[in-house]
Design a protein around this nucleic acid. Structure first.
Lengths: 216, 216, 216, 216
DNA sequence: GATGAATGAGGATTCATTCAT
DNA sequence: TATGAATGAATCCTCATTCAT
């Protein structure tokens, strides 16, 4: 989708016969560049990442990068959008409304497992969403994603907290997301058995935090 | 103190009693500059902060800034050190070994209150410790601080967890610090009554997380 | 005189007899591209015009453009040549030696009308001939065209100024061309009745300038 | 006046004791840079002029240039403003309301002489005001200057054309300015005696154009 | 010490031009 | 031929840092 030219009337990948051929190489390049960007963002953060470094990492010239992205911000945005999309696609289930009969502990564990899995496979996600220096447009993306997350958690929580006032549920959801991020940081910082231990701790934290709130 | 290089053979290898006596004006300048830096780091993050912006914020010329700090990194390091120092000075009590008879809930609440208070008065602290792009030396500072924090929490926790193996206590301590940071972010993001609510939630989180671990 | 490229050793130094036979499609492409170039040059001027923009305006890819023109300059040159050619073809009459009995006022009016008509239909002409930044080769083209214009005006004027020395006639011709351009700019900058008024003024200027010179 | 910093509360050169010293070198640099810019603009036009080329011409580093001008456009604007200012200062007389008894021919000759003198000493003026590619802000400057010129000519003309309707006077003034520019171009393109000849012709053009309009 | 000017390497971005398909 | 991707030098501009006063 990123395109230098102004007009890009198509968005869905169907029913456009012409601009196909170009996307053969192009689409691959875009993926390549996004991957490179992910790697560089992870290492240096958004602000300190240079487009030249991204191009180099992708093994192309700076000009090529700019054939697909109008500027540095757009790379981050596209990356964020793709991650967000994949997150929604693949893990909508992780936060899908569950059978209220599901024990809370199980629900929490399942959600954490899926998210951890996602985040371990996409470490940029965390990196991108954390820079204190990310420019406006990306922050918006981030906020949108965060809001989605929070509201999903809210929806997930609601059945368990039928008597809690709305604002409190919202606050609790925000806490959960925040706690998850904190745990994620620790999980990502460790490996092997220690990582597993942190995952268990994270589940504990969330479960114990929520447990007193739910009704029996 | 501002010094990037580790070893600097010192002009006069003996009797460095003099350089200690920075003039009154000098100290004030440094404080001024660090304050400005804190403000700028908070707004833009470390990487995006320019030394010229810091100088301007401090109301001095760039040259003056470099009369007191050899480079940008040194500013952040000195800032971190001072914050850390103040933290230790003023709040050693917050994590001081307490009377083991103190109920856990109370201990947690007291610690959280003091830290929150500190962090609300020094928002840079949080900002500095979060850039994914902070260069090596600062990260070390950060890590040192973090390690201190963790070990203090560990010490605080120990009396409550006499039967827990060391590594587990360490992990728990790290979790606590991480959770605290997550809560802090939310606390700082809100004001007034909502902020208080988040503080309560944070205490809940920590207390509920730790409670099952303590022996009665 | 301004020139970006100093020396350009010419691709094929010999025997370029073949490239003359451009295919039908090719001719159409060229026309298309020149039209697009005219449009872009008008809007942004020569220097600021990008070959990519021209290709886009023409609805073709940059590669295609370079199949017909070796470089950007060549486009402007070809455009200039064609304009010049059309000018000669269609309006040689405008400056054709006239019946010396034709009153000067009438002759001036006729010439102005034809030129204005031409220039209104080809606004690039004016645009191309005005950039202070057009590179050497185009300037040469321009100069050639300008010289042609001047000498035609000179020829036109001669019958009216039989006693004036050659250099003076030349100077007068150059003045006429310059005045015409000045008027043209104003004419192009206005529309409708106001445009007509400027055309009248331009005729007045030229006529009054020349009138005292002619013998009765 | 050009200044990187946001706040520049002073505009008039009086009553500011502090920022004086800096302007010693600074003001000289600015003049130096503007001179260099003038030279480069003359040679290559605005668009093709590179800031690095200007800096090089001025014998300073690119960074220095940007210490005094926020961007390329600002250089042209400042240059334009200074020229405009000098034009107003020094030559307000050239277009000052004259004694209506002054013969038209004399008035025209005087005005032309002064303007030609000014323009010969500041060839950029012409160059700057002519690029078809100058960006918005400069065009505004240019238009402002042009409008000033036109209205001054209008004021100058009015006494001579008491019975001509306003719009016609305006149009005539615009014609005069246009004709002047056309003549100027020819004047600048020649030297010595030939230049003088063109100046005479220009005066003739204007005088003959206006003469029939004035009342006796 | 303080100031503001000076530096120059580096970063984002553009664009004429070439190349593989 | 046409296409769109690829190139890389060149541009504009920034910023950490140094220097003269």
């Amino acid at each position: 989708m990123p395109d230098t030219t102004e007009k890009r009337p198509e968005k869905e990948p169907a029913a456009d016969a012409r601009p196909r051929r170009r996307q053969a190489r192009g689409e691959r390049r875009i993926a390549q560049l996004l991957e490179a960007a992910a790697s560089v963002f992870c290492t240096t953060g958004y602000t300190a990442a240079s487009t030249n470094a991204i191009a180099r990492e992708a093994g192309v010239s700076p000009g090529t990068l700019y054939q697909f992205f109008p500027n540095k911000e757009a790379i981050a945005i596209e990356l964020g959008e793709r991650l967000m999309h994949e997150m929604r696609e693949t893990y909508s289930e992780a936060l899908a409304p569950m059978d209220p009969a599901t024990p809370l502990e199980e629900a929490v564990a399942a959600a954490v497992d899926r998210f951890i899995d996602f985040n371990c496979r996409h470490p940029v996600f965390f990196a991108l969403m954390h820079g204190p220096d990310i420019p406006g447009r990306i922050a918006e993306e981030h906020d949108a994603l965060h809001a989605t997350l929070v509201s999903r958690v809210e929806a997930l929580l609601s059945p368990y907290l039928p008597d809690t006032p709305g604002p409190d549920v919202a606050r609790t959801a925000r806490m959960c997301v925040g706690l998850y991020k904190a745990g994620l940081e620790l999980v990502l910082a460790h490996e092997g058995e220690e990582r597993e231990a942190y995952i268990r701790e994270l589940k504990n934290v969330l479960y114990r935090y929520l447990e007193p709130l739910v009704m029996d």
